[in-house]
Computed example of a mutant assay.
Amino acid sequence: MSDEGFLYLPDGALEALGIAPGEVADAIEKALIQKSEGALHTTPKSALLPGDARYMMSTLAVGNAEDLTVLKQVSVCPENPGRGLPAINGAIMALDAQTGLLRAILGANWITGARTAALSAVAARRLANPASKSVAFVGAGVQASTHLAAFMELFPLEEVRVYGRGAANADRLCAEAKAKGLAARRAATPQEALEGVDLVVTSVTLDYAIAPFLDAGWLKPGAFAAITDLGIPWHQESLKAFGQAVIDEREQEAASERKMIPPEIVGADLTELVSGAKPLRYDPARPSCFAFRGIALGDYAATALVLERAQAAGAGQRVTA
């Protein structure tokens, strides 16, 4: 820590900045170009599953353009709601990339939700039908809410379907959608949720003990699925129904023992997609998907953006020795 100390930005302060989902997506696309040009360096995401359906992960990225090092640690603890706590908690350290001095400590919850939906938006901008009017959510937690906001910016949505194990969360998401002027209902079965919709978001608990219950063969031609949950709820063989499949990062996926989707169907990762190395586009004849674990680049891009906005707005608390 320098004599000037560091900036402390809890989640409430980050949310109060009013950054739109599309702005986070734009920041991620900028970072993907930087990575393709060698100006941004990342390591594969590190993750542990220590039991009780808990999921601990960390990401690390260094950017030359912003002279910034970003390290994030997040824990997903499914028992937390029963304790009166959010299921996801963590923190982000931002340091000067030239000196290693601490520049800021940030809450990780808002950034994790915002960057995850923004990663989906980056892929959906290219692979989904621009006229998409309906979306199905399998899983109705924080990620469903952030994706709803992001997809409402991108598409002329009219209808929301929700399928989830928790009635309270499903009802909450339906109420949230109705408050935004959308028609919303709970689906009785997974097949009812997926059949005929333009967009799908799956975000179930990250627990490999869950038996697969989704079939990509239910999707109509041209549908787009954002798979945020490591592919856990999907029957793996059915995923070959996707005509186009994108993952977040090839290096990270190669280093992962258990693959999210069959490797042979992967057509590009995000860097290849955005840089134009693999310019996939919306195909009305076949469904497409984006499967992702979350990448250090997303956390880096969102952190750099909020630091810029927070400093301009004088937000946060300066902590000195």
Rank of each mutant, 00 (worst) to 15 (best):
L173A: 01
R161N: 00
A87I: 13
G298K: 06
P212T: 02
Q34Y: 13
G139D: 08
P86S: 14
N169I: 01
Q34N: 14
E176T: 09
A241E: 09
G5D: 14
D207K: 07
A302T: 00
L273H: 01
P221Q: 05
G217P: 06
S145A: 15
N80A: 13
A104V: 04
A188F: 10
Q191I: 02
G316D: 09
L219N: 09
D283I: 05
E195N: 10
F292V: 03
G90D: 08
P81R: 14
A225E: 09
A188K: 11
Q236L: 05
D229A: 07
A53D: 15
M56V: 15
A291E: 00
G181I: 00
L60C: 12
A131W: 02
G164Y: 12
F290L: 03
S132H: 07
Y8N: 13
P44S: 14
G12C: 02
A150K: 02
P86N: 14
G276N: 12
A108M: 00
E249V: 00
R309S: 03
D26S: 11
S238P: 05
P233H: 14
T43H: 14
K72R: 11
S132L: 01
P10V: 01
V62E: 11
A170P: 08
S132W: 03
P212N: 09
A291V: 01
A254C: 05
G107H: 08
P10F: 06
T69Y: 13
A47Y: 02
E237I: 07
T202S: 15
W110H: 15
G314E: 06
L297P: 04
S132Y: 06
L106M: 12
L297Y: 05
K35R: 15
M57Q: 04
D269C: 08
M1V: 11
G90R: 02
K133D: 03
K278R: 15
A144C: 11
A123Q: 08
D299T: 01
A94N: 06
L173G: 06
K178N: 07
M260A: 12
P287K: 07
D215V: 00
Q73H: 15
R54I: 12
A241N: 08
S238V: 02
I261E: 05
A211W: 01
V274N: 07
D11P: 13
I227N: 11
A97M: 06
G222T: 01
A123D: 10
R103D: 10
L14N: 07
P262N: 10
V135K: 00
A97F: 06
Q34V: 03
G298F: 09
A87Q: 12
A167M: 09
F151I: 00
E23D: 15
G18S: 07
M152R: 12
T228H: 13
P284K: 07
L173E: 01
P262Y: 04
A254T: 09
S36Q: 13
S58I: 01
E79W: 10
A91Y: 08
R250G: 05
V138R: 07
T303R: 00
L230P: 00
G294F: 02
A321T: 11
A53L: 11
Q191W: 06
